[in-house]
């Protein structure tokens, strides 16, 4: 009788524990969701009223604090970085997936270094970029020094996403191509790569997000000077939008403008994420 009772209470306790766990799990989900809502709402509410046409004037002056040059610098930075990093990253992934033998030492080394590269914080990239490009190569603080630094930073992202995209291409594609007499290079470029394009693109967009949100790696490489207008000269200095926000904080005088810049950065992040997940979904559908 007593034994029975204790079993019963134990069971009840277990159920109570389960209930508590369930509540705890739901609460933490709710906390994370509300943190997200608070962050986005805060930036939008504080920022949108501060958006003004002055901030988008073509010429930057200390009066209007226009972010237009910074926006164009950002676009240039993204394009140049992708132009260099994407071919290297994609071809590296092709080697890892299509050429290297399983368990080969080369793959192990490349994988380990890619992981290491991914874990290095941006401030270290910034220091390295400053030491090698700005001082050793004597480029000075230029867009190009920033671009080269960012290339190294986003390379792991591109390699990893391209690898995944290539692995998702069914082997029957390759076999079909080989059986029709195509060589390996032809098969890779004509058959495998086109099938992997959406996946590769979603990686590129992810990398774009990292480039335009980057600050610590750029402050010492492409510099913190905001020119009067956008010049587009890669051998000149130039700050991106995120760096511009950092400058505004550093000067401590332009809180309203900083709010506005935050909104622009947030909206761009949302756009990039939406585009990336749309493309990723497309890949999923194709293979699923």
């Amino acid at each position: 009788m007593t034994a029975n009772a204790s079993v019963n209470t134990a069971k009840k306790d277990l159920h109570l524990g389960s209930k508590l766990l369930k509540i705890a799990v739901w609460v933490s989900g709710a906390i994370v969701a509300s943190l997200f809502v608070i962050l986005v709402a805060f930036i939008l509410i504080k920022g949108i009223p501060n958006l003004s046409l002055d901030l988008f004037a073509w010429k930057h002056t200390t009066k209007n604090m226009s972010m237009m040059p910074a926006i164009f610098n950002t676009v240039e930075m993204v394009l140049l970085t992708l132009l260099i990093a994407v071919p290297i990253g994609v071809l590296a992934a092709v080697y890892m997936v299509e050429y290297a033998k399983k368990g080969s030492k080369i793959v192990a080394v490349v994988r380990l270094t890619t992981e290491t590269l991914q874990g290095i914080p941006s401030i270290i990239f910034g220091l390295f970029g400053m030491l090698i490009f700005v001082y050793s190569f004597e480029w000075g603080k230029t867009m190009m020094a920033g671009v080269m630094t960012l290339v190294l930073m986003i390379l792991p992202v591109i390699i990893r996403t391209t690898e995944e995209a290539l692995l998702a291409v069914p082997d029957s594609y390759r076999e079909g191509s080989f059986s029709l007499g195509a060589g390996k290079v032809r098969t890779v470029f004509r058959i495998v790569m086109p099938a992997a394009v959406p996946g590769i693109l979603s990686g590129i967009i992810l990398a774009t997000g990292r480039i335009f949100g980057e600050t610590a790696a750029l402050v010492f490489t492409s510099g913190t000077s905001i020119g009067r207008t956008f010049t587009g000269d890669p051998t000149g200095p130039g700050c991106t939008l995120a760096v511009y926000l950092y400058i505004l904080w550093n000067e401590g005088l332009y809180t309203e403008q900083a709010y506005a810049v935050s909104v622009v950065l947030l909206v761009l992040t949302i756009g990039i994420n939406a585009l990336s997940s749309y493309l990723a979904k497309k890949v999923g559908k194709k293979n699923g």
Binding site: V32, F36, I43, T215, L245, Y259, L266, T269, N273, S277
Partner: peptide, 24 residues
């Protein structure tokens, strides 16, 4: 809804987080 929101949190630039911290 939640999963894309968390992905978005991962993509927000750290300066924006900094400003949020400073102001909120």
């Amino acid at each position: 809804v939640l999963k894309p929101a968390i992905d978005l949190l991962a993509g927000i630039p750290s300066v924006v987080y900094g400003y949020f911290g400073l102001m909120a």
